[in-house]
Amino acid sequence: MTTPLWRTVFAIIRKDLRAELRSRELVSTMVLFALLSVLVFSFALELDRTARQEIVNGILWVTLVFASILGLNRSLATERELGGMDAMMISPIPRMAIYLGKMVGNFLFVLVVGLSLLPVMTILYNIVLIQIPLLAILVLGVFGLASIGTLLAAMTAQTRSRETLLPIAMLPVIIPLLLVVIAAASAVLKNEDAWGWIGVLGLVDIIYAMLGLLLFEYVIED
């Protein structure tokens, strides 16, 4: 009687994409925030060529992390406002599907933000960021953010001070991910071999996704 996992996941992703395409609430907020953040950084830090090269990855990822926190907060809050989460909770679906569906949606939204930042930062910082290894790092890094972020946001969305609690809960926990991402991206910009780091990044992603899959059902139940 249980609805198959993949059908449910697909339905949740379609629902989120449909709502987002119509309102553009999430992505437009995140993109605008990200652009502003990048501009603020470039004004606040007067950088020469070598300094730019060293810091550009840091700016990109700090911006993406904060933008993703904005998006995650919103994405899980919509599930609570009119009780969409309860509608899923009373239907005969595998709980894991809710996690996978929300996670893939958040992954896609943050990825859009990341992809739109790359050309902008390439121009502003005069460093070519559109390279295959950097794109791989972007995809894997954003996947990590979405997988642990969806789990944490599902928790904080149920607390009293949800908007403020997510960054406090999420920032320290994603440091391992950030560390590997920055190491990998710096290696690419220095023309060193980055694939070893990208492999470690994949490993971190797997750990986060496992934690999300295993623990999500506990945080949404009542």
Binding site: T3, K15, A19, A87
Partner: peptide
């Protein structure tokens, strides 16, 4: 109400219908 405000009535029901296979 247990639905999503940025979806139409039909879209909301379609989503629920998919959840129930």
């Amino acid at each position: 109400p247990l639905f999503y405000e940025n979806l139409t009535a039909t879209e909301n029901l379609t989503f629920v219908g998919r959840l129930y296979n």
